[in-house]
Write a protein that binds this DNA or RNA. Structure first.
Length: 638
RNA sequence: GCCAGCGUAGCUCAGCAGGCAGAGCAACUGAUUUGUAAUCAGUGGGUCGGGGGUUCGAUUCCCUUCGCUGGCUCCA
């Protein structure tokens, strides 16, 4: 008797069909699903499979379209295979390695006698288009691992062989389209013709298996979307995002410069930029004092002996700057912790004093590798809103939780979304297993009690303890570590920090390093991109500008600007002999929130006409009303 | 640090199969006294990132070095 299976599709009545030769495609057809053309794959009992996957028992099925995020990932992965085929075709002798789907697109890493260049991309794209036109089927097969090793050896693909040798599975899946066979878990779209819109974006070097001791491969990046419109929209978005680049806005808004002749990674803040960071720093000092932190301030240079004692010399020395004076070696601080340890140890501490929270806007220097510098976001000199908390082990979790509250409150003010990453013990580290366990638990429990989602980065912790990193995104959606909370059981030990407990005995305190903004420079960089340079009134280095119509209005304009300045409002003037439209345009490009127009009419009434940055005009108002408005907005931090 | 690309006026960029270095904006000078995103005219401005080489001649080709951009690695 013929076997039948029952297929369930959400929103349709179940269907009984013959199991003979039934696959995903046939099953969806049997249920007369719409849009077969846009089908990338199928979910069988929630598991994503090729459309060609066999179905031999009753199942819940669901189509996966190329327009969905899951479907797009499959399209992108398939595009990577097509690119690999095109590259193998154009560059005989090239060796393939890995090629996954990533956000918005895909990449594939190749090993070839020369590096690929941007000018190779159009040829590769054309060849890919040919392969797509042929609408070649992606054919999955499962083979014993040993057989796959022989297959890739025969094809002269040592990287694939290496990958296979590291696998423990007995059977592996391989996919073939046209002349190209790849080791791959899948799934894939049914045929190359499903790839409707792609573009190769750039080439880059990448180490095999992400290890800098391995060979440098040639990586080609591409993007792929369900249709040409989505691809065009994505490319346009990228162009728009590039206009928010803080390095570009930094010049346009006259915030800062970074110059070759000063040194890479060293920032010069111009008055507007310096005002911006002053506002931010003052704000952060107040927020810390409110939460029971005490101000501290350490020196910029500390004797090298001290850096040896703290462990920085051994573990971080290659990133430090050293200098020598009167035969005495000094190191410029790359971190602020040492002075804070010395403040703690300057006298005998009682458990009644704990926790101690030392806060410093500490400027540090770190010799970052040249290739990683990135405007304000990755600099060699920067200032941290840094604090070190010394507490009992019992207080540790409570302190971590209140830091998470602090982070949440501050990020809400700026309107930042963030995600958390918890890093565990690296191979090169110090401290006892017990200390590490205890610290990691405190971190994880605190995050979980806040109901915050997080990811774990195994082995990514600092050498002295585990950490929680708070990640923010820049205009191009790249993630950067800003706030960080790091446990440290090493430094209290090295500096022999103690407190006298209720039992009259000496105990070792626990310690937390933490920053909220992270680096003021980095945070500013992200902030500039976040607001696209149009800072809210409370942050705007210039809050208002007085624009005169004719020279007759200058004395009145002077009075107005003095009144505003006296009320604590940051005001500039533009009394030049130019047309109003010209002055408005310039103020607009400087993204000044309040443009204050004064002409004969305003002089008569003693009022001011206000144009906002968004183009709106407010009814004319008295200087007093204007001051109230700007102050009110600043207080609300809008 | 590694891979690829790029360094021309204050800024954005053109130019160059090797033959006296250009535009727009900005700056400066003058005219204009102006009502919500660019008034007009004129003037000055460059060791073509630095060093070396090839050449009669290099901004252009080659080497090297510094820096920048995008990745990779790193990121206490």
């Amino acid at each position: 008797m013929e076997k039948t299976v029952r297929l369930n599709l959400k929103g349709s009545p179940p269907v009984e069909v013959s199991a003979q030769g039934l696959n995903g495609f046939e099953a969806l057809k049997a249920l007369s699903t719409d849009n077969m053309e846009k089908m990338a794959a199928i979910k069988i009992n929630g598991e994503i499979k090729d459309l060609s996957a066999e179905i031999n028992s009753s199942a819940q099925i669901e189509p996966v379209y190329t327009t969905s995020e899951e479907g797009l990932q499959i399209v992108r992965h398939s595009a990577a295979h097509v690119m690999a085929e095109a590259v193998k075709d154009l560059f005989p002798g090239v060796k393939v390695t890995i090629g996954p789907a990533i956000k918005d697109g895909f990449y594939y890493d190749f090993d070839y006698e020369r590096r690929f260049e941007a000018k190779d991309l159009p040829d590769i794209e054309s060849k890919m288009a040919e392969i797509i036109d042929k609408d070649l089927a992606f054919i999955r097969s499962e083979v014993p691992r040993e057989e796959a090793i022989d297959l890739f050896k025969a094809q002269g693909e040592p990287y694939k062989v290496e990958l296979l040798e590291d696998l423990s599975e007995e059977k592996v899946s391989i996919y073939r389209q046209g002349n190209f066979t790849d080791l791959c878990r899948g799934p894939h779209v049914p045929s190359t013709g499903k790839i409707k819109a792609f573009h190769l974006t750039n080439v880059a070097g990448a180490y095999w298996k992400g290890d800098e001791h391995n060979a440098m491969l040639s990586r080609i990046y591409g993007v792929a979307f369900a249709d040409q419109e989505s691809l065009d929209a994505h490319l346009k978005n990228l162009e728009e995002a590039k206009k928010r680049d803080h390095r570009l806005l930094g010049r346009q808004l006259d915030l800062f410069t970074i110059r070759d002749d000063v040194g890479p990674g060293m920032v010069i803040f111009h008055p507007n930029g310096a005002m911006l960071r002053h506002i931010l720093e003052e704000f952060m000092i107040r927020e810390h004092l409110k939460r029971g932190y005490e101000l501290a301030q350490g020196p910029q240079l500390l004797k090298t002996e001290l850096w040896k004692k703290s462990g920085h010399f051994d573990h971080y020395g290659e990133h430090m700057y050293f200098t020598s004076v009167e035969d005495q070696s000094y190191g410029i601080k790359p971190m602020n912790c040492v002075a804070h340890m010395l403040i703690y140890s300057s006298k005998l501490r009682s458990y009644r004093e704990l926790p101690k929270r030392y806060f410093e806007l500490g400027t540090v220097h770190r010799h970052e590798r040249s290739g990683v510098l990135h405007g304000l976001i990755r600099a060699r000199q920067f200032t941290q809103d840094d604090a070190h908390i010394l507490c009992t082990h019992e207080q540790l979790k409570g302190e971590i939780k209140s830091i998470l509250d602090f982070v949440r409150d501050i990020m809400a003010i700026f309107g930042f979304d963030y995600h958390l990453e918890i890093s565990t013990r690296p191979t090169k580290s110090i401290g006892t297993d017990e200390d590490w366990e205890r610290a990691i638990h405190a971190l994880i429990e605190s995050v979980e009690e806040h109901n915050l989602p997080y990811q774990i980065n195994e082995g990514e912790g600092a050498f002295y303890g585990p950490k929680i990193d708070v990640m923010l995104k820049d205009a191009l959606e790249r993630s950067w570590q800003c706030a960080t909370i790091q446990c440290d059981f090493a430094l209290p030990d090295r500096f022999d920090l103690t407190y006298v407990g209720a039992d009259g005995e000496k105990h070792r305190p626990a310690m937390i390093h933490r920053v909220i903004l992270g680096s003021i420079e980095r945070f500013l960089g992200i902030l500039i991109e976040h607001y696209a340079g149009a800072f809210p009134v409370w942050l705007a280095p210039v809050q208002s500008i007085v624009l005169t119509i004719t020279d007759r209005n200058i004395p009145y304009g002077e009075d107005l600007s003095k009144t505003l300045f006296g009320a604590g409002i940051r005001v500039e003037t533009d009394f030049r002999n130019e047309k109003l439209s010209f002055k408005v345009r310039e103020a607009q490009m400087k993204k000044i929130p309040y443009m204050l127009v004064v002409g004969d009419k305003e002089m008569e009434t003693g009022h001011v006409t206000v144009r906002l940055r968004d183009g709106r005009n407010l009814p004319s108002m008295s200087p007093g009303e204007l001051i109230d408005r700007i102050r009110g907005e600043s207080e609300k931090r809008r």
